[in-house]
Amino acid sequence: MFTAFSIMGCSLELLKTCAQGIVTVCKTQDEIIRKKLISMRIKTGTQVLI
Score class of each variant (00 low, 15 high):
8 M>I: 12
8 M>A: 13
8 M>F: 12
9 G>E: 08
9 G>T: 03
9 G>C: 08
10 C>T: 12
11 S>V: 02
12 L>G: 12
12 L>I: 14
12 L>Q: 08
13 E>C: 10
13 E>H: 12
14 L>E: 12
14 L>V: 06
14 L>G: 03
14 L>K: 15
15 L>Y: 01
15 L>V: 06
15 L>D: 00
15 L>I: 09
16 K>C: 08
16 K>D: 09
17 T>I: 11
17 T>M: 07
17 T>E: 15
18 C>G: 09
18 C>V: 08
19 A>L: 04
19 A>T: 10
20 Q>G: 11
20 Q>H: 10
21 G>A: 15
21 G>V: 02
22 I>D: 01
22 I>N: 05
22 I>W: 05
23 V>M: 03
23 V>C: 03
24 T>P: 00
24 T>D: 05
25 V>Q: 12
25 V>W: 04
25 V>T: 10
27 K>V: 04
27 K>P: 00
27 K>S: 10
28 T>K: 02
28 T>E: 04
28 T>P: 00
30 D>L: 04
31 E>V: 10
31 E>C: 05
33 I>A: 05
33 I>T: 14
34 R>F: 08
34 R>K: 14
34 R>M: 07
34 R>C: 06
35 K>F: 02
35 K>T: 11
37 L>F: 06
39 S>W: 02
39 S>Q: 13
39 S>H: 11
39 S>N: 15
40 M>K: 15
40 M>N: 09
40 M>C: 13
40 M>F: 11
40 M>V: 03
41 R>V: 05
41 R>Y: 11
44 T>P: 01
44 T>L: 06
45 G>K: 11
45 G>A: 09
